[in-house]
């Protein structure tokens, strides 16, 4: 079996002396959509932050496209094509939609911006309409689309979406998951970190369930969805 596109093995990290991740291992194949599930406070965001280099790992290895990245700077990880769209959107509120998008392509050649922007506008027509609007004045759903659009501007080969549906109305969540399918159909590998279990497992091919900093369940999306332990034990339902 070839080496996975993204592999995380026995990852440990935390804040101060508090260990949050206690040996997490997972893998994403090229073009694959993988869901990471788990209730609040199980280490999902910590995992993402460690993969994207914002947090340092204590122990364990992270490899992307055959290269170890656990000691690299976030900006170099972005340049390698691994993009993390963070929880809470983290857009630049004082800049226009267009400036936000262009900053997403900060590490790339200027000439690539227009085609990338056109591609993003193709997926999110509403962003095209609001190009010159201040990002801080967008609705929550539009801000989430902008955050994903900014991530796409970097021409990702793997996109980490951290809680994209958080705070959106059910109707917008439907729309968002349709857009996630569109992105996946373009061949971009996705690591989808969500609390929205049912819809995530519909989009994903495989999934992992985190609890207390460990992977407690992994397998195909169907298998996880049908696992009797899933709802009862790990998602607190």
């Amino acid at each position: 079996m070839p080496e996975p596109f993204l592999s995380v093995s026995e990852l440990h990290t935390g804040y101060g002396v508090t260990e949050i991740l206690r040996g997490v291992s997972l893998a994403v194949q090229p073009g694959e959509v993988v869901a990471v599930l788990g209730s609040n406070g199980t280490g999902k965001s910590t995992l993402n932050r460690t993969i994207s280099g914002v947090m340092r790992s204590w122990r364990g290895a992270i490899r992307f496209d055959g290269v170890p990245i656990e000691r690299k700077k976030p900006s170099d990880i972005v340049a390698a094509g691994l993009i993390h769209v963070p929880e809470g959107r983290r857009i630049f509120p004082n800049m226009t939609v267009r400036e936000n998008l262009d900053l997403g392509a900060y590490r790339r050649n200027r000439t690539r911006r227009t085609p990338s922007r056109d591609r993003v506008f193709g997926i999110f027509p509403r962003l095209a309409e609001r190009q010159s609007q201040q990002a801080g004045t967008l609705s929550g759903g539009e801000q989430q689309m902008l955050a994903i659009g900014r991530g796409l501007m970097a021409d990702p080969r793997l996109l980490i979406l951290d809680e994209p549906s958080l705070g959106l109305s059910p109707l917008l969540v439907e729309e968002l998951f349709a857009l996630i399918r569109t992105i996946a159909a373009q061949g971009i590998a996705l690591l989808l970190v969500e609390q929205n279990v049912a819809q995530s497992l519909e989009v994903a091919q495989r999934g992992y369930v985190l609890d207390n900093g460990r992977v407690v369940l992994e397998g195909s999306a169907d298998a996880i969805g049908n696992d009797p332990n899933l709802k009862r034990t790990y998602l607190g339902m």
Partner: peptide
């Protein structure tokens, strides 16, 4: 304005 967002956009 948004350090984490900037970092994850590839800004050093």
């Amino acid at each position: 304005k948004e350090k984490l967002g900037a970092e994850l956009s590839g800004i050093n």
